[in-house]
């Protein structure tokens, strides 16, 4: 009987650590998304130019690549993460301004669609506890190819390639959400700041790709 009660009441330390990691990551993710949304609103109201948006995105990527990995294990990691998400939010200003002037319902649909995809994929990964670590190579190659195609399309400006890149980004970011969530569950990621940064980037890219795809198929554009 004593053995039975011990088996029921004792929770492995690794499970507690995983639950804490997931709880902290989602809490921080919700706060960074709100902060990024506020920064995006500032970008929209101030009519931030495309040049400022580009500089803002470059600064965010530089912080993400060179500063966050060095500060993620200290208290400085949180302000750095808020800086990154704020800069990415500000960088959304011109894109949001464009689609808000064309058809505001596109922005709301993209926002709702992104939320539904993220919640659905996270719920799937969390409830099934499947290991999606086998996706790492596929997702990285896919991301590399998509960035290459986007680079080509800056100069070629082919509408079909623009659509294909956005569809591919939606699929790849969906894969990244599964991969990152499963790596939190299965011990691949143990730092909640890095886990939040990964999920935030996936959500941001998913939102911008969905927004551009919906904008391209909108009749009023």
């Amino acid at each position: 009987m004593n053995q039975y009660s011990n088996a029921v009441t004792s929770i492995p330390a690794s499970a507690l650590a995983t639950n804490k990691l997931i709880r902290n990551s989602y809490l921080l993710l919700s706060m960074t998304l709100l902060f990024s949304g506020a920064a995006a609103a500032v970008g929209v109201f101030m009519h931030v130019s495309q040049g400022v948006a580009l500089i803002s995105n470059i600064a965010a990527i530089a912080l993400l690549w060179f500063v966050l990995p060095r500060t993620a294990n200290s208290a400085m990691g949180i302000p750095v993460l808020f800086g990154i998400t704020g800069l990415f939010g500000l960088g959304l200003g011109p894109l949001l301004n464009h689609y808000l002037s064309v058809n505001p319902s596109i922005v709301m649909t993209a926002l709702g669609g992104t939320g539904a995809i993220f919640l659905g994929l996270s719920a799937y990964a969390l409830t099934t506890r499947k290991d999606f670590s086998f996706l790492a190579g596929f997702l990285m190659v896919g991301l590399f190819v998509v960035i290459g195609a986007a680079l080509l399309n800056i100069f070629l400006a082919i509408p079909a390639l623009f659509l294909a890149v956005n569809v591919a980004v939606i699929m790849i970011m969906s894969g990244f959400i599964l991969f990152q969530t499963s790596s939190m569950i299965n011990g691949g990621e143990t730092n909640y700041i890095m886990a939040t940064a990964g999920l935030f980037l996936s959500i941001l890219n998913l939102f911008t790709a969905l927004l551009q795809l919906l904008g391209a198929f909108n009749n009023n554009d």
């Binding site: 319902s105 596109i106 994929l121």
Partner: peptide
């Protein structure tokens, strides 16, 4: 996910 995105496209 693809089917859901197609549904969203049809909605706008």
């Amino acid at each position: 996910v693809g089917l859901f995105v197609m549904l969203l496209i049809m909605m706008v």
